[in-house]
Design a protein around this nucleic acid. Structure first.
Lengths: 227, 227
DNA sequence: ATTTGCAATAATATCTGATATTTTTTGTTT
DNA sequence: AAACAAAAAATATCAGATATTATTGCAAAT
């Protein structure tokens, strides 16, 4: 018999520590361009802005550095990682490679739960897309979340924590470029999402992969054009 | 008396900060099993062992956590990331995916310098392999270095910093499992290395990829069997 | 005997402030 | 404009202090 988890009074505690909330806030600010690419991150300034001590901030910045959102040249402090066309292209290529592979596995392994989640995620994304098309650009953040949740739902059954984790950072890096250019790709993306969704549900892995690759590459072109 | 430094204008300074050297040492100790999988990493103990302050150590551990060598459950300190068969399999699959892709690109883009480096790297690896076959297992570290340098030399011309950096972490994770089982695969690996080397120099990308995939998968079988 | 409750202990997360070094800036001189 | 030294700013590192949380030990209750 498996050891039952103690159903004791201790509930899940979503209480964030200063460290983890600072981490999220800085990462968010980098991704959404509130901290500009290349900007110097001076400890004093950050202490003010995020009301955290330098110890905590240095821990956070080290973490972000190892994920690639921050650069930390020895002895010279911290900088927001700069952006470049080459970097965007590299990120995109990696995303194609990893996300397509994950999608294939996911379609192979996905069970009913996976399908259910995917349907829900697509539905929510679709609603949001209608609002964006209707001109309501007020909720970048929400749109971003739903797009992410949809892409995640597609690959979630790939059965590899390592893959999902790599993909997640990659997606965030891509997202920063997306947020940088601020433009919404519109109808095309809607159509592509729907097509991928259908292919995935139909368990047509090779078609789904192909659509996903095009979708990601189209996004790249769109972003490059706007840079 | 190495205290005094040449006040040369622009000299490379390979002088490690406490932070970076601690980082390297702990990472090394995890990879080479001197810190066991799952082990609790108590600050007090680490302070002793690495003679660094808790601030510095926490920075280091955060970095290692974000790379996946350390786990850091909120409010409960740090642990060496445990090992498992599933994890090893995931790591291997990812390595196949990334390294094969990188190899293909590298063969496509590699110039004369790349070839030169590759020849040199294979030569050094080969020498070391002869000594290993002859029974000299005293230099695990060196063998590891040469194997790494060979694999790196093959993919170095892939033209993607992001890819190389992901691959490097992945390789280190694989290496930990390798070091864990302590056995040397021997002649087979030597032959495989040579075959890959030849295919790469002959610019036969698809053959090289296939050989590399087999090479990595054979390594996995070997390690799994010994676990 | 196992579970429950709670005090005692250990360990963590966070902050402050100090110091030695290094980088960057500034101002002067050639 | 280049070179350079002095001054200022910022970093890396450390040693505590404190509040909070996790873990352990053990007695009481089931």
């Amino acid at each position: 018999m498996e050891k039952q988890k103690k159903p004791d009074k201790k509930m899940n505690k979503p209480i964030a520590t200063v460290g983890s909330s600072t981490y999220q806030r800085i990462k968010h600010d980098i991704i959404f361009g509130e901290l500009n690419p290349g900007a110097k991150l001076k400890l004093e300034a950050l202490k003010q802005r995020y009301s955290a001590s330098s110890s905590t901030l240095r821990e956070t910045l080290n973490r972000l550095a190892s994920e690639g959102f921050v650069e930390a040249p020895e002895q010279r402090g911290f900088f927001v990682t700069p952006v470049s066309r080459e970097d965007l292209i590299e990120i995109t290529e990696l995303r194609v490679l990893l996300e397509c592979h994950a999608l294939e596995q996911s379609i192979k392994n996905g069970d009913t739960d996976w399908e259910g989640n995917l349907v829900a995620a697509h539905h929510k994304l679709h609603l949001m897309e209608q609002r964006m098309l209707a001109g309501d650009h007020s909720e970048k953040e929400m749109w971003k979340r739903y797009d992410w949740e949809f892409h995640l739902a597609m690959i979630e059954a790939c059965n590899s924590k390592n893959l999902l984790s790599l993909h997640s950072t990659l997606y965030d890096k891509y997202l920063r470029y997306q947020m940088l250019v601020l433009t919404y790709r519109g109808e095309e993306a809607v159509v592509e999402h729907k097509a991928m969704f259908d292919a995935a549900l139909a368990r047509d892995a090779s078609k789904a992969k192909q659509l996903l690759e095009e979708h990601i590459r189209n996004g790249l072109e769109h972003t490059l054009a706007a840079m």
